[in-house]
């Protein structure tokens, strides 16, 4: 997550300077050809695994040995197998992933907004320390704490079954915890950019902070809220490690853990089906990123720039 936000801050710098000075330097023809060569090679490197996996997904023989770039008799067989395979309940995994990620996104946005609002609009003792603590906490990857998280839910599950291993609620909580800090900072930055005069005058008119939060700030921040929700959703959807630590049964797996199963069991025979599943599973995220690329970047830079 922090990686993405880093991109966004440099993108912000880039956009600032782009406007400042568009002076093109002299270019010679040889330079341009060299550039195009780099482009072709880079694109080839980026796309060749993708093209290969698309081809494999349509190859009915389905095993790794029989790969060809253009399969002899392309068909949708792998996709059919994927959707009807009782040993690998693909659709179940998709549903699990969507469930976990969207619940995480909704709960995440709510708690992120509440905290961000307080940081942005109130001045209280210990506010600065809390914000610093939030940053500091992000330093240690949650991944390092999987043993303790495993223990926590193994113990809690003995008293509250829904909070035990192999359940989805602990996964949601874990994802919330890992993503919260940096998103609160982003959201707070965006809230700061909403002029305070609006809520000051509402306060004078007798509105409570809850009313200001829901009636004024919430509608104004809607684009940012959507983006934060999407970022949380995408990160949760892609997560693999914590899910594989916490989930034990195939029927409870999220998609990423499930796809890994194809590979760890009998890779070369499952190759075609895995290809189909991987493509279907990756598609929503790739599409989200590609279509919202500009909005995500634009929204975040707006939030990152202090008002």
């Amino acid at each position: 997550m922090s990686k993405l936000s880093d991109v966004l801050t440099t993108e912000a710098a880039q956009q600032k300077t782009k406007k400042a000075k568009p002076s093109p330097r002299r270019r010679n023809r040889r330079g341009l050809i060299l550039r195009l060569l780099v482009a072709v090679l880079a694109i080839a490197f980026a796309l060749f695994p993708i093209i290969w996996i698309i081809s494999a997904s349509f190859n009915p023989t389905g095993s790794l040995a029989s790969q060809k770039l253009i399969p002899d008799n392309a068909s949708l067989e792998n996709y059919q197998t994927l959707l009807n395979d009782p040993i690998h309940p693909f659709l179940r995994w998709v549903v699990n992933s969507l469930k976990v990620s969207s619940i995480t996104a909704v709960l995440g946005v709510i708690s992120i907004m509440l905290s961000a609002y307080s940081f942005s609009r109130f001045r209280f003792k210990g506010r600065r320390q809390l914000m610093l603590a939030l940053l500091l906490i992000q330093v240690f990857p949650t991944l390092l704490m999987f043993v303790a998280i495993f223990y926590l839910f193994q113990q809690l599950g003995q008293y509250i079954p829904a909070m035990g291993l192999n359940q989805h609620a602990p996964l949601v909580l874990t994802y919330l915890g890992t993503q919260m800090g940096i998103q609160i900072w982003l959201m707070k930055g965006f809230f700061d950019s909403i002029p305070r005069d609006i809520d000051e005058s509402a306060l004078v008119d007798g509105a409570s902070h809850w009313q200001i939060f829901w009636r004024l700030i919430f509608p104004l921040a809607r684009p940012m809220i959507v983006i934060v929700a999407l970022l949380v959703f995408i990160a949760s959807y892609q997560e693999f490690v914590l899910a594989s630590v916490l989930l034990k049964d195939k029927s409870q797996y999220t998609l990423m853990v499930g796809l890994y199963l194809f590979v760890s069991e009998n890779f070369s025979n499952n190759w075609g089906v895995f290809a189909a599943g991987g493509l279907l599973g990756a598609l929503p995220i790739v599409v989200l990123y590609q279509t919202l690329q500009d909005q995500i970047i634009g929204g975040l830079t707006a939030g990152a720039v202090k008002g």
């Binding site: 609002y117 303790a148 998280i149 223990y151 926590l152």
Partner: peptide
């Protein structure tokens, strides 16, 4: 003002601080 941090605070205690200490 701090009340607004209850959800985030609870989650951070459970998922970040406890695992770190533990």
């Amino acid at each position: 003002p701090v009340r607004w941090h209850i959800p985030a605070g609870a989650i951070v205690i459970l998922i970040i601080i406890f695992p770190m200490v533990y």
